[in-house]
Amino acid sequence: MVLSGWESVFFWVFALTALVAGLLTIMARNAVHSAMFLISTLMSVAALYVLLGAEFIAGVQILVYVGGVMVLFLFVIMLVNVSAEEHGREELFNSPSQVTAAVVFAALLVFGLFYAVNMSAQQFAPGADTSTTERAATLRSGETRVSKISEDTQRVGSSLYRYGGLPFEIASVLLLVAIVGSVLLARTSKQEIASDNTDAEGEYVSTVETDASGDVA
Protein backbone atom coordinates (compact mmCIF):
# COMPACT_ATOMS: atom_id res chain seq x y z
CA MET A 1 0.00 0.00 0.00
CA VAL A 2 2.10 2.85 -1.28
CA LEU A 3 0.73 6.14 -2.52
CA SER A 4 2.62 8.08 -5.13
CA GLY A 5 2.45 11.26 -7.18
CA TRP A 6 -0.54 13.48 -6.50
CA GLU A 7 -1.94 10.96 -4.08
CA SER A 8 0.86 11.60 -1.64
CA VAL A 9 0.39 15.36 -2.00
CA PHE A 10 -3.30 15.01 -1.20
CA PHE A 11 -2.45 12.64 1.64
CA TRP A 12 -0.26 15.22 3.37
CA VAL A 13 -2.70 18.07 2.72
CA PHE A 14 -5.66 16.20 4.18
CA ALA A 15 -3.69 14.60 7.01
CA LEU A 16 -2.34 17.97 8.17
CA THR A 17 -5.79 19.55 7.78
CA ALA A 18 -7.30 16.79 9.91
CA LEU A 19 -4.70 17.22 12.63
CA VAL A 20 -4.79 21.04 12.73
CA ALA A 21 -8.59 21.17 12.66
CA GLY A 22 -8.68 18.48 15.36
CA LEU A 23 -6.41 20.56 17.57
CA LEU A 24 -8.54 23.66 16.93
CA THR A 25 -11.64 21.61 17.82
CA ILE A 26 -10.46 21.11 21.37
CA MET A 27 -8.98 24.62 21.69
CA ALA A 28 -11.73 26.84 20.29
CA ARG A 29 -13.51 29.02 22.83
CA ASN A 30 -16.83 29.07 21.00
CA ALA A 31 -18.56 25.69 20.87
CA VAL A 32 -19.99 26.44 17.42
CA HIS A 33 -16.45 27.02 16.14
CA SER A 34 -15.47 23.69 17.71
CA ALA A 35 -18.25 22.02 15.74
CA MET A 36 -17.12 23.70 12.50
CA PHE A 37 -13.52 22.57 13.02
CA LEU A 38 -14.73 19.06 13.81
CA ILE A 39 -16.65 19.10 10.51
CA SER A 40 -13.45 19.95 8.61
CA THR A 41 -11.63 17.16 10.45
CA LEU A 42 -14.34 14.70 9.47
CA MET A 43 -14.24 15.85 5.83
CA SER A 44 -10.44 15.46 5.74
CA VAL A 45 -10.68 11.97 7.23
CA ALA A 46 -13.29 11.15 4.56
CA ALA A 47 -10.78 12.30 1.93
CA LEU A 48 -8.19 9.98 3.49
CA TYR A 49 -10.74 7.16 3.17
CA VAL A 50 -11.02 7.94 -0.55
CA LEU A 51 -7.22 7.77 -0.83
CA LEU A 52 -7.40 4.35 0.84
CA GLY A 53 -9.93 3.15 -1.75
CA ALA A 54 -12.94 3.12 0.61
CA GLU A 55 -15.32 5.39 -1.28
CA PHE A 56 -18.47 3.96 0.28
CA ILE A 57 -17.24 4.60 3.82
CA ALA A 58 -16.21 8.12 2.81
CA GLY A 59 -19.74 8.79 1.57
CA VAL A 60 -21.27 7.33 4.71
CA GLN A 61 -18.90 9.41 6.83
CA ILE A 62 -19.99 12.65 5.16
CA LEU A 63 -23.71 11.78 5.12
CA VAL A 64 -23.99 10.43 8.66
CA TYR A 65 -21.43 12.50 10.53
CA VAL A 66 -21.51 15.86 8.78
CA GLY A 67 -25.14 15.65 7.70
CA GLY A 68 -26.60 14.03 10.81
CA VAL A 69 -24.49 13.97 13.93
CA MET A 70 -22.95 17.42 13.56
CA VAL A 71 -26.32 19.04 12.86
CA LEU A 72 -27.55 17.42 16.09
CA PHE A 73 -24.53 18.85 17.89
CA LEU A 74 -25.23 22.33 16.52
CA PHE A 75 -28.88 22.16 17.59
CA VAL A 76 -27.87 21.19 21.14
CA ILE A 77 -25.24 23.93 21.28
CA MET A 78 -27.94 26.43 20.38
CA LEU A 79 -30.36 24.98 22.95
CA VAL A 80 -28.02 25.28 25.93
CA ASN A 81 -26.53 28.54 27.06
CA VAL A 82 -22.77 28.64 26.56
CA SER A 83 -22.36 32.41 26.20
CA ALA A 84 -20.52 32.72 29.53
CA GLU A 85 -17.70 30.57 28.19
CA GLU A 86 -17.62 32.45 24.90
CA HIS A 87 -17.28 35.87 26.50
CA GLY A 88 -14.37 34.81 28.66
CA ARG A 89 -16.23 34.94 31.96
CA GLU A 90 -15.80 31.20 32.44
CA GLU A 91 -12.62 29.20 32.40
CA LEU A 92 -12.16 27.21 29.21
CA PHE A 93 -10.06 24.39 30.65
CA ASN A 94 -9.88 22.51 33.92
CA SER A 95 -7.52 23.68 36.65
CA PRO A 96 -3.82 23.98 35.61
CA SER A 97 -2.70 20.91 37.55
CA GLN A 98 -5.38 18.78 35.89
CA VAL A 99 -4.45 20.14 32.47
CA THR A 100 -0.76 19.42 33.07
CA ALA A 101 -1.48 15.86 34.11
CA ALA A 102 -3.73 15.35 31.07
CA VAL A 103 -1.17 16.77 28.63
CA VAL A 104 1.59 14.60 30.11
CA PHE A 105 -0.67 11.58 29.76
CA ALA A 106 -1.54 12.41 26.14
CA ALA A 107 2.15 12.95 25.29
CA LEU A 108 3.03 9.56 26.79
CA LEU A 109 0.23 8.08 24.70
CA VAL A 110 1.63 9.66 21.52
CA PHE A 111 5.15 8.41 22.22
CA GLY A 112 3.91 4.91 23.02
CA LEU A 113 1.81 4.80 19.85
CA PHE A 114 4.71 6.07 17.71
CA TYR A 115 6.93 3.39 19.17
CA ALA A 116 4.34 0.70 18.53
CA VAL A 117 3.71 1.88 14.95
CA ASN A 118 7.42 1.99 14.19
CA MET A 119 7.97 -1.49 15.59
CA SER A 120 5.00 -3.07 13.86
CA ALA A 121 5.40 -1.27 10.52
CA GLN A 122 8.81 -2.92 10.10
CA GLN A 123 7.24 -6.29 10.74
CA PHE A 124 4.37 -5.75 8.33
CA ALA A 125 6.59 -4.64 5.45
CA PRO A 126 7.74 -7.84 3.73
CA GLY A 127 11.47 -7.60 3.07
CA ALA A 128 12.34 -4.99 5.70
CA ASP A 129 12.67 -1.26 5.11
CA THR A 130 13.99 -1.20 1.54
CA SER A 131 10.76 -2.71 0.21
CA THR A 132 8.93 0.60 0.34
CA THR A 133 11.31 2.29 -2.06
CA GLU A 134 11.53 -0.76 -4.27
CA ARG A 135 7.78 -1.08 -4.60
CA ALA A 136 7.52 2.64 -5.27
CA ALA A 137 10.10 2.26 -8.02
CA THR A 138 8.19 -0.55 -9.70
CA LEU A 139 4.97 1.50 -9.67
CA ARG A 140 4.54 3.11 -13.07
CA SER A 141 3.84 6.84 -13.16
CA GLY A 142 0.10 7.49 -13.20
CA GLU A 143 -0.69 4.00 -11.96
CA THR A 144 -2.28 4.30 -8.57
CA ARG A 145 -4.05 0.99 -7.95
CA VAL A 146 -7.02 2.76 -6.36
CA SER A 147 -10.07 4.48 -7.89
CA LYS A 148 -12.16 1.43 -8.62
CA ILE A 149 -15.25 3.19 -7.32
CA SER A 150 -18.05 0.75 -8.06
CA GLU A 151 -16.07 -2.32 -7.02
CA ASP A 152 -15.47 -1.18 -3.46
CA THR A 153 -19.12 -0.44 -2.71
CA GLN A 154 -20.16 -3.74 -4.22
CA ARG A 155 -17.68 -5.69 -2.12
CA VAL A 156 -18.59 -3.87 1.10
CA GLY A 157 -22.27 -4.48 0.47
CA SER A 158 -21.94 -8.17 -0.26
CA SER A 159 -19.60 -8.67 2.70
CA LEU A 160 -21.96 -6.74 4.99
CA TYR A 161 -25.01 -8.79 4.10
CA ARG A 162 -23.25 -12.13 3.70
CA TYR A 163 -21.15 -12.19 6.87
CA GLY A 164 -22.68 -9.44 8.99
CA GLY A 165 -26.41 -10.14 8.80
CA LEU A 166 -26.99 -10.59 12.53
CA PRO A 167 -24.84 -7.60 13.59
CA PHE A 168 -26.73 -5.56 11.00
CA GLU A 169 -30.07 -6.40 12.64
CA ILE A 170 -28.63 -5.75 16.11
CA ALA A 171 -27.41 -2.36 14.91
CA SER A 172 -30.89 -1.49 13.68
CA VAL A 173 -32.36 -2.44 17.08
CA LEU A 174 -29.67 -0.30 18.73
CA LEU A 175 -30.68 2.67 16.59
CA LEU A 176 -34.36 2.16 17.53
CA VAL A 177 -33.44 2.08 21.23
CA ALA A 178 -31.35 5.22 20.75
CA ILE A 179 -34.29 7.04 19.12
CA VAL A 180 -36.69 6.09 21.94
CA GLY A 181 -34.09 6.85 24.61
CA SER A 182 -33.20 10.28 23.30
CA VAL A 183 -36.87 11.23 22.97
CA LEU A 184 -37.45 10.11 26.58
CA LEU A 185 -34.39 11.96 27.86
CA ALA A 186 -35.08 15.22 26.08
CA ARG A 187 -38.70 15.61 27.28
CA THR A 188 -39.54 18.82 29.07
CA SER A 189 -40.58 18.56 32.71
CA LYS A 190 -44.13 19.54 31.72
CA GLN A 191 -44.37 16.60 29.36
CA GLU A 192 -42.85 14.33 32.00
CA ILE A 193 -45.40 15.33 34.63
CA ALA A 194 -48.19 14.91 32.12
CA SER A 195 -47.23 11.33 31.34
CA ASP A 196 -46.16 10.30 34.84
CA ASN A 197 -49.09 11.62 36.91
CA THR A 198 -51.73 8.93 36.72
CA ASP A 199 -53.99 8.02 39.62
CA ALA A 200 -54.90 4.49 40.81
CA GLU A 201 -57.47 3.92 38.06
CA GLY A 202 -54.95 4.84 35.39
CA GLU A 203 -56.72 8.09 34.57
CA TYR A 204 -54.66 11.15 33.82
CA VAL A 205 -54.51 13.71 36.61
CA SER A 206 -54.73 17.01 34.87
CA THR A 207 -51.73 19.09 35.79
CA VAL A 208 -51.73 20.54 32.33
CA GLU A 209 -54.61 21.66 30.28
CA THR A 210 -56.91 18.84 29.27
CA ASP A 211 -59.84 18.82 26.96
CA ALA A 212 -63.25 17.42 27.68
CA SER A 213 -62.41 13.78 27.02
CA GLY A 214 -59.56 13.87 29.56
CA ASP A 215 -56.74 13.43 27.10
CA VAL A 216 -53.62 15.37 27.79
CA ALA A 217 -53.23 18.18 25.34
Binding site: A31, V82, E85, F93, N94, V99, A102, A106
Partner: peptide, 8 residues
Protein backbone atom coordinates in the same frame (compact mmCIF):
# COMPACT_ATOMS: atom_id res chain seq x y z
CA UNK B 1 -9.32 15.21 29.68
CA UNK B 2 -8.80 18.94 29.35
CA UNK B 3 -12.09 20.60 28.43
CA UNK B 4 -14.91 21.48 30.83
CA UNK B 5 -17.69 21.88 28.28
CA UNK B 6 -19.48 18.53 27.98
CA UNK B 7 -20.47 19.15 24.34
CA UNK B 8 -16.82 19.62 23.35
Amino acid sequence: LVRRNIIV
